[in-house]
Each structure stands twice: as structure tokens, then as C-alpha cells.
Computed example of a mutant assay.
Amino acid sequence: MPGKPSLDDIKQAEKKPLWQRLGWLAMIWTGSVLALFVVASLMRMFMNAAGLSTH
């Protein structure tokens, strides 16, 4: 399959330093949290514009 990584690709990825792999994990996590914040903020803004509020 063209999209499936080969065993050599996996071994090369495992050779990268731990700090680099953890850095990618942290960046992906931070990006997902920010995306969730943006979506939640937009939903709250639209709900407030429609007259819905929590108090």
C-alpha cells in the first residue's frame, strides 16, 4: 500500500530523540486544545447573539 509506512520508516522515526517526539506530541495537543477553544467560543458567541445566555 502506498500510504502505509515501511519498517525502515518506523525505525528511522524511533531513532529521533525523545524530546523531539514529545515536542510533536505537545504541539499536536496544544493545537487541538486551541481549536476546541475557538469552536466553543464561536458557539458561545452565536448563542449570545441569538439571545441565549447562561445567566
Rank of each mutant, 00 (worst) to 15 (best):
D9V: 05
K16C: 06
Q12I: 14
N48A: 07
W19D: 13
P5H: 05
M1Y: 10
V39N: 02
I28C: 01
P5M: 04
L25C: 07
T30S: 01
K4S: 14
I10T: 10
A40T: 12
K15C: 09
G23H: 01
D9M: 12
F37V: 08
P17H: 12
M47R: 06
M47E: 03
G23K: 02
I10D: 04
P5L: 12
R44Q: 10
S32G: 10
L36P: 00
A49D: 05
S53W: 06
S6N: 03
H55A: 10
D8I: 11
A40R: 05
T30N: 00
M27Y: 07
A50H: 01
A13H: 12
T30L: 08
P17N: 09
P5F: 07
K16A: 14
L22S: 05
Q20A: 13
M43F: 11
V39A: 07
M1I: 08
M47G: 03
L52C: 03
W29E: 11
M27K: 09
F46K: 08
D9A: 14
F46W: 10
I10P: 05
A50W: 02
D8K: 07
K4R: 15
G3N: 10
P5S: 06
D9G: 09
K15E: 13
D9H: 11
D8F: 09
D8L: 11
P17V: 01
F37I: 07
G51C: 04
L42R: 02
M43W: 07
A50D: 02
I28P: 02
G51Q: 03
N48S: 04
F37H: 00
W24R: 13
